[in-house]
Design a protein around this nucleic acid. Structure first.
Lengths: 190, 190
DNA sequence: GCTTGTATGTACCGGTCTGTATAATCTGGC
DNA sequence: GCCAGATTATACAGACCGGTACATACAAGC
């Protein structure tokens, strides 16, 4: 019986793998390092996950849920549709300043895992779709034209990548200002 | 004596490596495959490039120049500053429809090559800076506020990533429309 | 003709990778 | 007490990796 009070081997493996994959890339992290850092025996990993690919897929699934929860937090930061859309960019500003920020983990995995059938693309696509739906619903509530959802998503994704490459939070701030302009909020608050 | 009429081993290695790295990722392509596809002996590669890292760096350098040339082509597509800024998004629309489009190669390399000192980041940063300068110069010529340069760069980068993940050119078209709005060109031409 | 630089082919080294085999150990339920 | 399942430890297989060693071939310049 799996004990839910202690972390549990599977969960600890998942967290450790997610952290290492995000920090250094899926291809650059081996099974040996994952089990060593998780404090778990080799066979235990292969007991819970039949292969490294399966572990990667499980990590992507967890990341997908994590990003959805991140997006949902914007609703708690503001009460109006416009404010909630802008709050996403506040979350971005905080996120890019995290010490171990390395861009969107789903997009990052989509880039590293090349090949014909990239297992990360569907997860990244789902996330982008979710972002667009988030913006689209609230844009409609605010009586804004439908194309603002796409604009905001493009700004968000562009700022995420640019912040990583520039190693600076400036892009997130610029994206917030641009979003405020798109939303017709001249000042945009602070 | 290096013969410039025939491709030359070094150039062929560079092209082959660039293509393979872009299609499947640096870590997922070995030396053996590069020399096999380039039709070059193993020792010839190590004669021109002391290590795989050096080859990767040379490829990144070539990609950087390639992207700069791509950006410069926008000036030939229009005569006004505003038109030239918008033309960049026309180029993007064409690019993302290329069969082997895989996003910006410099950004892609920045994601795959993890680690503390990522050799691709400086190249990607230079490129983003060049894009911003391109927009900034022409925005000033057009009498537009300085922050439109950042907005357009964020839209461009966001659309590049989104088009890759979505496997569609729609994001590029949306970015073009958003750029036209930022530039105060309601219709944006076609 | 000889030298020099470039390219070739092949075999090999040490290391790392994913995944498997095998046997010992711990733990909770009945 | 006993059994079943989860976990551990270790050793190993098979493949691939980047990089080197060595001997050879070819072409051009003097």
């Amino acid at each position: 019986m799996t004990d839910s009070s202690t972390p549990g081997a599977a969960e600890r493996l998942l967290d450790t793998a997610a952290r290492l994959f995000y920090a250094r890339g899926v291809s650059n992290v081996g099974i040996n390092e994952i089990i060593a850092r998780a404090g778990v025996a080799r066979m235990t990993l292969y007991h819970h996950f039949p292969s490294k690919d399966a572990l990667v897929k499980a990590v992507l699934e967890a990341r997908r849920a994590e990003r959805a929860a991140w997006l949902a937090r914007a609703d708690e930061l503001a009460s109006t549709p416009r404010g909630r859309m802008l709050a996403v960019f506040d979350l971005l500003e905080s996120w890019v300043q995290t010490p171990d920020f390395r861009g969107c983990p789903l997009v990052a995995a989509s880039f590293e895992l090349g090949g014909q059938f990239n297992p990360a693309i569907p997860y990244a696509r789902d996330h982008i779709t979710a972002v667009r739906e988030f913006f689209a619903e609230r844009a409609e509530q605010a009586g804004l034209p439908a194309n603002v959802a796409a604009q905001l998503q493009l700004l968000l994704e562009g700022a995420t990548v640019t912040a990583l490459v520039q190693g600076s939070a400036a892009a997130a701030t610029e994206a917030r200002a641009a979003a405020a302009a798109v939303l017709g909020m001249p000042q945009g608050g602070s």
